[in-house]
Amino acid sequence: MKSNIGHVNNCYGCGVCASSCPKHIIEINFNAKGFYEPKIQHEDACISCGICLNVCSYISDKIALDSNPIACYASWSNDADIRKICSSGGVGFEIAKHLVNRGYKVVGVKYNAVSNRAVHYIADTYDELRASVGSKYIQSFTTDAFMNIDKKKKYLVTGTPCQIDSFRRYIQKFKCNDNFVLIDFFCHGVPSMHLWDKYSKNIQKVIGEIVSVSWRNKINDWHDSYNLLMKGEKACIFHRYSQGDLFFKMFLNNSCLGTACYTHCKYKGASSSADIRIGDLWGKTYEKDEKGISGVVTFTETGEDILHQLNCHHVKSSWEIVAEGQLHHKLKKPLSHGFVCWLLKTNIPLKLIYYFVQFTRLPYLLKCKLKI
C-alpha cells in the first residue's frame, strides 16, 4: 500500500498535502457533504515519500507549535478608515500592510465572484491586499495559492487554525520557518458549501449574478455586524442575523459544520500553531465600543515583535478578557448532521431546512431555558 493521504476522509480540507506533493497527484475537491477533501489522482505515480502525511495536521494528536501564549491584548488600528472596513479592530490588516511594506508577500483570503467561493491568493501590494479585508464565513480553497509560494521568499500566511497548523508542519518539514509569519483566528468552524450554494442561489434570483460579498461589515454597528451585503448585476441586498438571516442562523446553530470541526478540532482556547491569533473581542470590557476591538494573542517572539511595530493601540489584557465569548471546547456533532448536509443539496427551501434543524434542537433549547 502506498504511503499517502488517500485513506483520509472528512479531514480539515486545508489543502497543504496537495501543495506539498512533489508529484502533484493530490487534488482537493468537495466531498458529498460539501467540504474540501484530498483525493489521490494517478495512484501509480505516488513515490511513497510520505510528505503529504508529514504535513497533515488532521492525523496528528498534537499541534505543530507547542507554545503557550506570550501575551494577550485588546487592540485596534489607529487609522479610523481601516478600523471601519475591517470586521473588528483592523489589526490583521495592519499586520499585513506592515509586512507588505517590508517586502513580504501576503497569502490571504478573498471572495471569488466567478467561482462563488472563498479562495486563498497572494497579494504583493497594498491595493491587492484590500481584497482580503473582512471575514469570510465559508471554507477557503488554498491549493492554488499555496502551490505558488516560493519557500525562499518572505510571506505572511493567514488562515483557519487547522490550515495554519498544517502549514506550520510544511515549513518545519522544509526548514524555512524564518521566511514565514503565520496568523490564525478564533474559529467557530466552517459550514457546508451546500449551505452557501443554496443561500446564494436564492439571492441571485433577486440581484442577478453576484459581483461581491461583504461578510461582517459595520453598516449598523460592530455588535450587530453578523450581516451580509451582496452586490449583484441588477441590485444589492443586505441581510442581518439579528433580523433572521438564514445563512448566519444555520451557521451559528452548528448544524452543518465540517465533520472535523466536531471530532478533530484541537485549536479551541489557547491552542495554536500561529505566531499571532486574532479575533473579535466581544466581552463585557468593551461592550459599549461600536468601532471594533481585536482580541490578539501572541505565541512567538516573532509575533510579539511584529505586533509592537504596527500603527495600532494595544491594551495588555488577560486571557479571560481577550477570549471572552469565544469557543473553548469543540462542538458536539448533531445526530442530524449528515441528513442536514444532504437536505441542503435538495430543492427543499432553506427556511424549511432551518425549521427542521430547530425542531431537532428543541430538547437542547428547552434544557438551556430551564437553566436560566
Rank of each mutant, 00 (worst) to 15 (best):
S192W: 00
S192N: 08
M193K: 01
M193C: 06
H194R: 00
W196V: 02
W196Y: 15
D197E: 08
D197N: 02
D197C: 08
K198E: 10
Y199Q: 10
Y199F: 12
S200V: 06
I203E: 07
K205L: 01
K205C: 03
K205A: 07
V206A: 01
I207W: 00
V211Q: 13
S212D: 14
S214Y: 10
S214W: 13
S214K: 15
R216D: 10
N220T: 14
W222E: 05
W222Q: 08
W222F: 07
H223G: 04
D224K: 15
Y226P: 06
N227R: 12
N227P: 14
K231L: 01
K231Y: 06
K231A: 12
G232K: 03
E233R: 12
K234Q: 09
K234C: 06
A235D: 15
A235S: 13
C236K: 15
C236V: 06
Y241W: 08
Y241K: 07
Y241D: 12
Y241Q: 11
S242F: 11
G244C: 06
D245T: 09
D245F: 10
L246R: 09
L246A: 02
L246S: 09
L246H: 02
L246Y: 12
F247A: 07
F247G: 01
F248Y: 15
K249S: 13
F251R: 05
N253E: 06
N253V: 09
N253A: 03
N254T: 10
G258D: 00
G258L: 00
C261R: 01
C261Q: 00
K266N: 06
K266R: 14
K266T: 08
K268I: 06
G269I: 08
A270K: 00
S271H: 14
S271V: 06
S271T: 08
S272I: 09
S272N: 08
S273E: 00
S273H: 09
D275Y: 05
D275C: 14
I278T: 09
D280K: 03
L281F: 05
G283M: 09
T285K: 02
T285F: 10
Y286R: 08
E287W: 05
D289Y: 07
E290K: 07
G292V: 03
I293V: 15
I293E: 00
S294E: 01
G295V: 06
V296T: 13
T298R: 02
